[in-house]
Design a protein around this nucleic acid. Structure first.
Lengths: 149, 149
DNA sequence: TTTAATTCCTACTTTTATAGTCGGCTTTTT
DNA sequence: AAAAAGCCGACTATAAAAGTAGGAATTAAA
């Protein structure tokens, strides 16, 4: 039940982007360096986020990325589901059920998976990028040591 | 963020065992057949459950397994954590933190993972095997078609 | 007392997903 | 023209999951 690096790196990158790209756009290289992620790998992740409509890009020299919509309109759920697919613990309770399970609607354990999946979505959909930016700024103002993303 | 077959098969097997082993003990072969799981593979899973103190075994001919404690004292969380390890979405918020993360206590995204992990544990710890047995029996009495585990 | 049924144990194998790496093309600014 | 970016597809290495295989130990029943 672990999140892959896609989700972990992706959320970090998005928070980094949200914090550093106010009005301007920033190069992937800078995000990769700050968050200590392979730039080439991050490239693949941000391509997914771009196709999901969460970030936009400007090509060419001095190009880079910025959020496609304001941070208060992007939830952690949007980011994680874009990168990880459904967050349901088993396929038969995914939003878009693709599985071929004969026991679909009459299976006792399925109710357990459903409850878990619902709660996960509830949590991640209740947190926006703006919330995380606020956390970051508040913590870095209050404390003497540095907070990470 | 998917549960592995360990957790899925394990929970199914435990519910099957809870339903069929009232007073008696039942052979793994029967559970494997009913739940359509490789017997040899299930053997490995139940070994973990036995070591976790959730089931007990009787060896030899006519031997088999039964619950080590009453079904109302076994939660889904007990079973899943035994088989899957911590249900935390990332290591740094596991119960027994083993990870070496320099940003441990000053990382914004960590709060997200913590909330997810807490909710997952909340759900699975609130459901006992007895609850699932009840679900199963109620559904099979009410409906004309058969419910699965 | 042998046989059959069962749990127990260790090691091996196959498949799949993850987590990258590599190299080159395209676009845009300087 | 050159440099700095993003864009794209293919390849690779590692690890984990999911299962197989084979046999030893234990016990009930014939």
């Amino acid at each position: 039940m672990k999140l892959s690096t896609k989700g972990r790196y992706g959320l970090k990158a998005m928070v980094d982007l949200a914090i550093h790209s106010q009005d301007k756009h920033i190069a992937l290289r800078h995000i990769a360096e700050r968050q200590d992620i392979s730039e080439h790998y991050l490239e693949q992740l941000i391509a997914v986020l771009r196709k999901a409509g969460l970030v936009k890009s400007i090509r060419g020299a001095q190009g880079g990325y910025s959020l496609a919509v304001p941070p208060e309109e992007i939830t952690v759920g949007d980011i994680l589901r874009a990168l990880e697919g459904s967050l349901a613990p088993v396929d038969c309770v995914s939003e878009n059920v693709t599985t071929e399970c004969a026991e679909w609607d009459c299976c006792v354990t399925r109710t357990v998976w459903k409850k878990i999946g619902d709660k996960i979505n509830e949590v991640v959909d209740s947190i926006t990028l703006q919330d995380l930016i606020k956390d970051y700024e508040k913590l870095n103002n209050d404390k003497e040591y540095m907070y990470y993303i």
